[in-house]
Design a protein around this nucleic acid. Structure first.
Lengths: 249, 249
DNA sequence: TGAGAATTGTCCCATTTCGCACAGATTGTT
DNA sequence: AACAATCTGTGCGAAATGGGACAATTCTCA
């Protein structure tokens, strides 16, 4: 098995030292010999909702490779307002700065949808990177494409209205979580969208009336994905294409 | 001369093969032996205002190392609206994706303030990178920090009003251009800020009344930098710190 | 089971911004 | 000197958003 390409590695054939199954696509995309270098340092962890994996200006202590669930990258202002600038699921990893040699990060990384995954000490990663050129390539690529995702988000935050952004956000979340029901409150969505809760509730109620989504206390369901895609801004497909480019080579 | 640190290399001691003086900090920060590898491939070019160095979704054909002037990274939507997501001056380089192994970019890179600099074929850079580890480190660091700058911009675009953003933008532009008078029209500022011209004119007139800036047709002058800094959002200093971290090590 | 916390539905209104439109001023071009 | 192009000042109504506030409902935990 060459192991260079995700398609060559069936998802059920790789585990960490604890025997936990690996679903994270970055770890699955590693060639066997380089994955062996990482194996011992990968610790399986639970990723409970709302847990912060990294706080702004702190040094990057761990990198995380999600198996399930979803992580938000959030910028926090002095006055406590927040807005999401990027997301990471099983197709990526948290702590992207390290592969680029940047040891701290200015964003908060918070679990948006609970799940599980693996983590590794930052300095362990940096040690392994010395002798794992393919890993370096994969992580750098991810860092670069993640930057482009953030760039698109920067434009989206400026140019598109709540409903377009909320639609895009729900689609992106759905893509990264296999559950049919997304366990999120309006209030939490508001902190991601950088607005207040009543604005989210208003947009959500319109979208519910129009048959795009359905929701109850603390959970949102996508009922008509096609309509939702039409409601979302182009940023959704732009970011999708970036993901595609990352995942398949 | 060790040449590893910018401070060790006086700015007047390095030229390209054409004998043109290098002011770009990335090129100046290279160790001598690695710079020699690049020297022959660096072509001096003029950077006239409004020239596009790269269009969205295109492959990255050249990388650019500005000596003077300033480049904007702009996202363009389907309906033609635009907004700036990042800037590059002599402290950085254009084409950041290449060091990360990403051969195309989804943003437009356009000259915001005229100047000059050097460019190199993308494939020449990739060839040189093979045998220039220090260059790879420097460029990767820049890519990572540039991503954080974009993340901060994403938040700023969502959370801060026109006057705060315009103030920040003027400060950042001033920092990268040594001219006292910035040659820019309100209309051009509007395309950078992702809004329309009249909104810019309104904000600018308020700021002029308050003694922060002064302007005439096609040019803006900062008259009270301290006031302007108070008018800007915190994003200015956050990004400044990222720059500092890049430039001095 | 009851109290308290969390979540959502609404409503209201001040503020900001959008999206025009048009007039006046400046520049530069012939 | 005249004309065209560009740039800025300004005004106005429509729309979106911000920022609260309060009630109703649902959930959690003691």
């Amino acid at each position: 098995m060459s192991g260079k390409n995700l398609r060559d590695v069936p998802a059920d054939q790789r585990t960490n030292a604890e025997g936990k199954q690996i679903l994270n696509k970055v770890l699955l995309a590693m060639p066997d010999n380089e994955y062996e270098l990482m194996r011992a340092d990968l610790t399986y962890i639970d990723l409970p909702s709302h847990l912060s994996l990294h706080e702004p200006t702190q040094n990057i202590e761990f990198v995380y490779f999600p198996n399930r669930g979803m992580v938000s990258q959030v910028v926090v202002t002095k006055d406590g307002r927040t807005v999401e600038v990027g997301v990471v699921g099983k197709e990526g990893y948290v702590g992207a700065g390290l592969a680029a040699g940047v040891s701290r990060s200015s964003v908060r990384e918070i679990i948006q949808i609970a799940g599980d995954g693996f983590r590794m000490k930052g300095n362990a990663l940096q040690r392994i990177l010395q002798s794992a050129p393919q890993l370096h390539v994969i992580l750098s690529r991810h860092t670069g494409l993640q930057g482009m995702q953030v760039a698109q988000t920067a434009a989206c935050n400026r140019l598109h209205d709540i409903q377009q952004r909320l639609s895009r956000w729900l689609l992106m979340t759905q893509d990264r979580v296999d559950a049919g029901l997304l366990p999120i409150t309006h209030d939490f969505i508001a902190t991601m969208m950088g607005t207040d809760r009543s604005t989210v509730s208003l947009a959500a109620s319109v979208m519910q009336k129009d048959g795009l989504i359905d929701y109850v206390r603390g959970a949102v369901k996508i009922v008509n994905r096609r309509k939702l895609e039409k409601s979302a801004c182009e940023c959704y497909s732009v970011i999708q294409q970036l993901e595609d480019e990352l995942g398949l080579r």
